[in-house]
Each structure stands twice: as structure tokens, then as C-alpha cells.
Design a protein around this nucleic acid. Sequence first.
RNA 1: CGGAGUGUAGCGCAGCCCGGUUAGCGCGCCACGUUCGGGACGUGGAGGCCGGAGGUUCGAAUCCUCUCACUCCGACCA
Length: 493
Amino acid sequence: MSNNKALPKRSEDYSGWYNELVKKADLAEHSSIKGCMVIKPYGFTVWEKMRDTLDKMFKDTGHVNAYFPLFIPKSYLSKEASHVEGFAKECAVVTHYRLKNAPDGSGVIVDPEAKLEEELIVRPTSETVIWNTYRNWIQSYRDLPLLINQWANVVRWEMRTRLFLRTAEFLWQEGHTAHATAQEAVEETVQMLNVYAEFAEKHMAMPVIKGVKTANERFAGAVDTYCIEALMQDGKALQAGTSHFLGQNFAKAFDVRFTTKEGKQDLVWGTSWGVSTRLMGALIMAHSDDDGLVLPPNLAPIQVVIVPIYRSDEEMNAVNAKAAEIAQQLRKASISVKHDSRDTHKPGFKFAEWELKGVPLRIAIGPKDLENNTVEVARRDTKTKEIIGMNSIYDYVPKMLDTIHDSIYQRAKNFRDSMITRVDSYEEFKQVLDTKGGFISAHWDGTGETEERIKAETKATIRCIPLDNPQEEGKCILTGKPSKERVLFARAY
RNA sequence: CGGAGUGUAGCGCAGCCCGGUUAGCGCGCCACGUUCGGGACGUGGAGGCCGGAGGUUCGAAUCCUCUCACUCCGACCA
């Protein structure tokens, strides 16, 4: 850990606060490789919890896991025209398969003899390699639907990266499903969007808006892109997950056909959906404060930390014995507990460290508590403390963890709701964007040109057209042309 | 790819303009003692090819040339 004890203040240097927090809370750090991060054990544990929870949700909705190759032949990528166009600018390309000693002894060089016949792309996403495989797996309507997910790493050679939010290599899951009908594929797309939204709200305690992307913001190769959009504390939006209805685009590109019940040949309908380690960034920014991380109980590697307080060895032994007993009892209730019995750090140091790392609940036990049969319980989210009877811990802790979840969710939701502003003129739009930020609900004439112009002039993009959007007559804030509904604009990560 | 920075101890930095004993400081680390209910203190100690290569010079962390890397701000994007 670095020496500066305090983080930058969010109000003074939001992005400095974020970067320092990620590093100081031991979540991740920059590696020596440009744009790539090392996810440290504490951060990886959070990701594992996300992964395990999502994995179960996928399986509960009928999906199975599989694994497809890291390398994609260049020719595959170019089969779907808009897909390759979308990803071409950020591909890592493998051109050779061997190194050799440099003739001048200066080290190793790429062996020019070992040039690949066809270059391999390090996958930026796996639609192409997967649909190429699906061609062989699907012959009949009886083979459908095919509901497959993979957990993988992907590479997108971004010009500019940020820990968790945008790294050159990232971890994610990508679901790829194949269906006999368009309707079924759309239902799958929406179902998975709902899975993501449920995960965000129930596990990350992060409210999200479900919506559809405009044509400009659509995934390369999709017919429709659905998304969940979250709002960060600095008023910028973050796309937290996407679910795509691919139509028959990839089936067409890879010639994936099936025989229908009626004996006719038809192209398969597809979906794909994904969330990535970017969710870690969302999680960090959704709840944390100037003292450090605030983790939702469902994803916290440590839900309860017990800090013993003592002076003499006798006190230490007595207090630690009690702490160990409490830890054991709580673990029986499936609560993840850390009994911080390190004799090398003082309580105050431990308090600060576990706050920085976002542990939702802290129990402190000292000689006074042993005497009074009490413990001190402190909430990370509100920084409030109370003294409770030793015997009520086992009721108290699980309930309080639920309370903390609800409380941070509600706080985030209140903030998010307060940051949705309705505007009816372009002037007002620009003013809100610069002074307040957040989502702006405004009328738009539905054209890509208008969207582009607004983006060029204000850096705001249409985050989504909310799913349950009320229909309402109005005029486009830029062109004044008629509009049937409001859409959500924001500056985004 | 444009702009701005930074590479000196594990981390954060000073020193560089104006070349000159043994390269400093804070944190961290190690030892011992006192401490321990909100980031303890004292004493002692360990730790450096000053990003790399070349040059100028009696002498380079410092000046010159070249290079490599990373960070931040833009354009691009999950």
C-alpha cells in the first residue's frame, strides 16, 4: 500500500479518487504492460462472487457453459460486414508463431520464416468463431434452442484505458444463443437483460435503467441492442451490460441453417449478451465514499470483520477466544467473517484498513465488552456504531447485512432519480449537462444525424430509449421536428 | 494518433535550471522497548547500476543526442 493515507476527495478529483481507491483497496493495479491491469486477490474475489452469482442465474435460465478458441482467423471476422467494421480498429493480430535468436546476438526476434498463412485475431468478442461452430451443431429445429455461455478473456486494443472501466484485456462472459424463431430470440434477449438488471439491483445494490440503444450505439452486427445503464456519482452514465438481438445476421454470414418442422430450410435466429469486469468499476463508483470502498454485502469478500481490542496478553487471549467463537457461529450462518487477530497492528489501523476495503460490518470486542457481555457493531455505509448484547449478534448481523444492502441501494437510487432531468430546449440541455450532469430526458427526432450533432457539440450520447417509456408528443430539442417519446442522454464512460 | 507529464529505495517525492565529498526526505520494512476502545512513539538498522544506450567533461542523477516505458487530458470504445 502506498503511503498517503487519505484518498483524494471525490468532489475535488473524481478520477484521481477512483484510481487511488482501486489501488489502495487492493482491487487492482496497472501492470507493466500498457493498458493491462493486474487484478489482485481482494479484487478478484469480488469478481469471483459476481461470476458465481451470474453463472447460477444463467444456469437457472437454462444455459450451459462451453469454451471457444482465443484465436479467430481473420477471414471469420470479415464475414459479417458491420461486425468487422465495428471491431477492426482495435484488434490484436497474431502474425507469426516462432521466435529465434537474433543473428547479432542482441536477443530474440520474430522468425520471418514463421509467418502464418492466415493471421489470427485475438478475440475481441466471439460471435464469429462461435457461429462458425454452430453451423456444424445445428441441423434441425430439434437442435434448437442452443443456449451457451462462455467465461473468457477478450482483447480490445483501446487507445485509452482505465482500471476496470476500460482495459485492453478484460474478463467477461458472453452468452451466444440460437433459436428457431425471431420471437423466441427476442424473448431470450429481453430475458437476459432482465437477468442483468436483477443482478445489478439485488447483488450490486445498483439501480439500472433498462432500455434499447439507438442505431448509432448498436452492437456491430446486431439488429437491436438492449442495455442496462447505471449512473455514477460524478453524474456520468455507465453502460453496465448489453444484450443483443442478432436477427439472422450471423446465421447468414456463417450459413447456419436448420430444417423446420415443416421440412423447410431456414436461417437460425441469434442473440448474444455480456457483462465484463467493467462491472467492478460500476460497483466501486456506485457506493464508495471518500474513506474508501463501500461493498454491498452480497459481493463483499468479507462481510463482517471482528477486531479484538486488548492491552495485556490475558486480555488478548480472552478477547480473541470470544472473537473466534463469534466468528465460528456466524460462519455457520454462511456469513463470511474475518477475525483480524493480527497482533502487529493496532485497532485504529485495522478500522481504517477495513473501511478502505469496504467491509460492510465491523464488530469490535474489548475487555469492557467481555465485562458487559456486549459488542460494538459499526456499519461501513453510514459510519454509525452501536453497542449490542453479545447474544443478539446472530440475529442482528444477517438482518443488518440486508438493511445495508437496502440502504445503499436506496441511496444510489435516490441519487440516480434526482439526476434525471427533463428538458425541453437545447439551451437548457447544454446547461444541465454542464452544471448538473446525470441523465437528461429529452425529445429527439429519431435521426442518426441529430444524435451525431448533439454528440459532437456536447459529448452527450443517447444512452438508451427506456423499455417502459411513456409515449408523449413533443419536439426535438435540436431540430424542433416532431417526436413521440423522450430518450435519455448523458455523458458516459 | 495529437497534447501534457513522469521514470531516483517497496511506495510517494526532493535534488537537475547553476555538473564536484558517502544521492536525500516521508511512509513502509527489520530489531528492541514502551504502547493498544479510531491510522502509536522512541532508539537503532537494512535497503539505490538516479528507465536504457551513446556523447561532452578531469568529473554526469544533473548538460547534449537517441531510445524505451508508463500515466494523465483529447479523438475511439464494453
